[in-house]
Amino acid sequence: MKWIFLDGIPIYQQIVQIMQIRIANGEYPLGSRLPAVRDLAMEAGVNPNTMQRALSELERSGIVHSERTSGRFVTEDEESMRQLRFMLGKESIDAMFTSLGHLGLSKEEIVQAVTARANELDE
């Protein structure tokens, strides 16, 4: 996940999302230590205070926690990780419902189609 920022959305919110994706996809593994604020800010090319704000936001949501002296760590809790993945996946699911809805499929038909497709992919 690269650091690309869109116009018109606060930068710290975009950093939160990029960090969530990086944590969900294992780029920052469970229980691992995150790089220092300034290093992350450098990498992303953003203001250190903005990075700090984004990390505090992640802390509030429980995905990372800070140890007084040793830095910030990704949660070790599998359950909050699972919730994070579902939360991030929701957007793609919504987009799928919208675009398939435009094709005239009902919610039930979409669910059936997804299940059928999942079975096909398993084979």
Partner: peptide, 15 residues
């Protein structure tokens, strides 16, 4: 702040 401008205007500071 830059993030206030982005939040309130829905635009980048540049725009």
């Amino acid at each position: 702040t830059v993030d206030e401008i982005r939040q309130e205007t829905g635009k980048s500071v540049d725009e």
